[in-house]
């Protein structure tokens, strides 16, 4: 069934952030967080084999101890300015739901991993309404830390929609 999904449906689909432990990583200057339950391991950036004819955010595949896993660039997926990899760039190997009801590995490139933090209900807030200025499809909430804010994301939703044509501009008149 390809095609764009109405924004309203997506907001309903992305679950709101729950208190718990989150892995904090950087994309550019901003901090993002993902539930540790989704994370299998973190590895250094290794040689990537590109796969042709895929959307721009799919970098290709890597060999993780004999297992082939896809590698996705979140900066491209979120339409953030592109930057070169450096020696702090690494890969978060996550696990997301697979079509047969199990889990499959999913690698995302990040600009650096900061820490694992625990967020309680007080520190969590829903995503503010920016009036359509940002694409909030995969954001599940915001967390307040002493040093700033962390944007929490839903990797399951990101993986589930990987075949969508990138992040469409959030349109007010959603397609049916």
């Amino acid at each position: 069934m390809g095609g764009t999904v109405p924004i309203s449906t997506l907001h309903a689909a992305a679950t709101a952030a729950v208190p718990g432990k989150y892995l904090i990583f950087r994309l550019g200057a901003a901090c993002y967080g993902v539930s540790v339950l989704s994370v299998r391991e973190i590895i250094r950036l290794c040689p990537v084999t590109p796969v042709a004819n895929m959307p721009a955010h799919v970098r290709g595949v890597i060999n993780l101890r004999g297992r082939i896993i896809p590698l996705v660039d979140l900066r491209t997926r979120f339409r953030l300015p592109v930057a070169a990899d450096d020696d702090r760039t690494c890969v978060v190997v996550a696990q997301v739901p697979s079509a047969d009801g199990g889990l499959r590995p999913y690698g995302v490139v990040v600009d650096g991993v900061e820490e694992v933090a625990s967020f309680t209900r007080d520190t969590l807030e829903p995503v503010p309404d920016f009036g359509g200025a940002i694409d909030a499809r995969f954001l599940t909430g915001m967390a307040k830390t002493p040093t700033g804010v962390v944007t929490l994301i839903d990797l399951d939703a990101i993986a589930a929609t990987e075949h969508d044509p990138g992040g469409a501009e959030p349109s007010m008149g959603a397609d049916a």
């Binding site: 796969v51 595949v61 896993i69």
Partner: peptide
């Protein structure tokens, strides 16, 4: 080795 769902039928 299979490429996985990300690439299924597309690549």
């Amino acid at each position: 080795k299979g490429l996985g769902e990300t690439f299924a039928g597309r690549a």
